[in-house]
Computed example of a mutant assay.
Amino acid sequence: MEAEPENCPGVGTENAGKSSACAGCPNQALCSDPNTKLEDPGKALVAESMREVKQKLLILSGKGGVGKSTVTTLLSRYLSRKYPEHNFGVLDVDICGPSQPRLLGVEGENVHQSGSGWSPVGVDDNLCLMSIGFLLGSQDDAIIWRGPKKNGMIRQFLSEVDWGKLDLLLLDTPPGTSDEHLSIVLYLRNNEAPDSLKALIVTTPQEASLLDVRKEINFCKKQNLPILGVVENMSAFRCSCGETSEIFPAKTGGAAAMCAEMNVPYLGALPLDPEVTKACDLGEDLTNIKNSTTDALVSICQKIIGTLEIEEVY
Rank of each mutant, 00 (worst) to 15 (best):
K149E: 13
C128K: 07
G164L: 06
L136M: 14
R146T: 14
D179I: 09
L188S: 07
D179Q: 13
P175I: 06
L182F: 14
V185A: 12
G147F: 10
L188W: 05
L168P: 01
K149L: 15
N190F: 03
L127A: 03
D167R: 01
K165N: 09
I154Q: 10
K149S: 14
D162K: 10
V185T: 13
W145M: 11
W163K: 05
P148N: 13
Q139M: 00
L168F: 05
V185N: 12
K165W: 01
A193V: 05
G147I: 05
M130R: 00
D141G: 09
P174Q: 07
I154K: 05
L186Y: 15
I143W: 12
D179K: 09
S183W: 00
L171W: 02
K165S: 13
D172S: 08
D172P: 12
N190G: 09
L158T: 06
I143Y: 12
I144W: 13
L168A: 05
I154P: 13
L129N: 07
M130P: 00
P148F: 07
G152R: 11
K149R: 15
L166T: 02
G176P: 10
D140K: 12
S178Q: 13
L136A: 10
P148Y: 09
S131N: 05
L171N: 02
S131E: 01
G164W: 03
L169A: 06
L136D: 08
P175Y: 10
C128V: 04
A142P: 15
A193G: 00
S178P: 05
E180F: 07
W163N: 01
D162H: 11
D172W: 07
L135Q: 04
L169K: 04
D140M: 07
G147V: 10
I144N: 13
F157L: 14
K165I: 06
G164Q: 05
G147P: 14
M153Y: 01
R146H: 11
L171K: 02
I144M: 15
E160V: 00
L127Y: 04
T177C: 10
K165G: 05
V185C: 10
V185R: 12
S159V: 02
D162F: 06
D172F: 08
E180C: 14
E180M: 12
N190E: 12
P174R: 06
D167W: 00
G176F: 04
L182W: 00
G176C: 06
R189T: 15
L182C: 08
Q156K: 14
Q156W: 08
F134C: 00
H181K: 07
H181D: 10
N151Y: 10
L135P: 06
Q139V: 05
L135F: 01
D172K: 08
S159F: 03
D140G: 01
L129M: 02
D172Y: 02
H181G: 10
I184P: 06
M130F: 09
L188I: 09
L136N: 04
